[in-house]
Write a protein that binds this DNA or RNA. Structure first.
Lengths: 111, 111
DNA sequence: CTGTTGGTTCACCATATGGCGAACTATATA
DNA sequence: TATATAGTTCGCCATATGGTGAACCAACAG
């Protein structure tokens, strides 16, 4: 079987870590350089850079370097893609339970 | 630093795999026993059971056994939690870009 | 030029993940 | 009772993940 949505793999994987989610939350308040972003976390810079690499590989953030400081910012497109998938699944689920509820409450179900 | 939303960890991790997302998609069409669920996939039953275990640990599915067949069904609550987190982030992002757009278009930005 | 700062790279380690095959249990069914 | 079926468990393996410390490069600052 082939993977139909390889983007979702990397996006969900990137989101499955509290450090990375926190980075996104922080970046929503505005762009920031690497060291500033790393401050709240107990780990070393190499480990933190790996997290940033995961986020960037997933397309959730972008970054560019000028001088010796690399500035990161969020890119919400992939975030929206993940949300869209979830919304679609929920729609299916709700449609199903709605129909189920309708059936249970329908006269036909009473026979 | 402590993990504030351990549920999101497991939910996003569970969703970061095409096999597991496909299982959810399949289960949205209705409950099904383990072997039926495993049919579309090339892997063996032991490997597939691990995927089901991941989904169940994340609270995305529930299952119960009667006789020798275990029937699985989705539990959409955690799915909704993941969607809620994403929606919240997007709201922050949109609020920010909206304000940014407003600023760019404002007279003050022209000075 | 020298030192410091921001970031990067490297080698390494422990654990988790995702797969396998083989053996096993328990429930139908003939 | 014998046999097939549904699922489970076990030991094993390769690779991925998340962290470390140490060395390193590039750009400011003095």
């Amino acid at each position: 079987m082939v993977n139909q949505q390889p983007q979702l793999d990397s996006v969900f994987h990137a989101l499955a870590d509290p450090t990375r989610r926190a980075v996104i939350g922080r970046l929503l308040q505005g762009a920031a350089p690497v060291t500033t972003l790393s401050q709240p976390f107990a780990m070393g810079l190499p480990a933190f850079l790996k997290h940033l690499a995961v986020l960037e590989a997933a397309g959730l953030i972008r970054s560019e370097k000028q001088g010796r400081v690399r500035t990161c910012r969020v890119d919400a497109a992939r975030l929206a893609a993940a949300e869209a998938w979830l919304a679609e699944q929920r729609a299916l689920w709700q449609g199903r339970t709605d129909r189920l509820a309708a059936f249970v409450e329908s006269p036909a179900a009473q026979e």
